[in-house]
Design a binder for these strands. Structure first.
Lengths: 128, 128
DNA sequence: CGGCATCCCCAGAGATACTG
DNA sequence: CAGTATCTCTGGGGATGCCG
């Protein structure tokens, strides 16, 4: 039952975080914006400003940084049209699309269990 | 295709992060330790010190804080045995176990695509 | 329009020490 | 053993402004 995968989690004797797949991946896309961008791109191509508007509480600074990292890791493809004014389009790569599967599973789980979690918090906080 | 779920992602007009399930959930378990703890607990009951040893680069400070949050959110059950010296056992709740499904999907994905990602980074960084 | 550079600031992680 | 308390400090994110 994923024993093999878990064995590749050994924090023991592997001070290098990069060597642990899940830690390496989550350190990159576990931030506040990455997954929102990926979800936004799942419907197709988006321009920078479109993403900025779609995720309305992200600054263009963070959007820029996050997109660059996603591009760097191969989740996203960046296409520049050298027009004036410049136009840039972002789309998911094959890798990025494949990531949508586990990501959407997570979204579905969160959606299904959110109210339960919120109730747990209330109960917990109500206790002395 | 999960359109319904995506519509519940609207950052627009919902300044309250709590109201977005996936953001709320990921803000809590998207940190560096939560998912490692959950994975460690999937094999059964663990004592505090066992977790501390299993995840060898977590401080007991952070382990304690993270466990408390996981308990608060209902992922983990904490059982105190009032002995001397004290003994505390942690185990997954039903909710916690259900979360293992999407989590393990993510682990499997990371495991399968980690080398691809690392190659992408190299290629990207090599480019001028 | 897209995106860096710069400055600032604070939540959060580490270190250390103490307690039931 | 299983935490909590306090302090410190850093790095990641916001705000602002400039550039091609």
């Amino acid at each position: 039952m994923l024993k093999g995968d878990l064995m590749s989690l050994p924090n023991k004797s592997t001070p290098d975080l990069q060597s642990c797949p899940i830690r390496d991946v989550l350190d990159r896309i576990g931030d506040q914006w990455s997954f929102l961008i990926l979800l936004e791109l799942q419907d197709g191509v988006r321009r920078f400003s479109e993403l900025n508007r779609a995720i309305d509480d992200v600054s263009k600074q963070m959007l820029s940084r996050t997109l660059k990292r996603l591009e760097q890791d191969g989740f996203v493809h960046r296409q520049l049209y050298p027009e004036i004014p410049p136009r840039v389009e972002y789309r998911l790569t094959e890798l990025g699309r494949s990531f949508l599967v586990p990501l959407n599973a997570l979204v579905a789980w969160a959606d299904a269990h959110h109210s339960t979690i919120r109730n747990c918090r209330k109960t917990y906080d109500a206790a002395p």
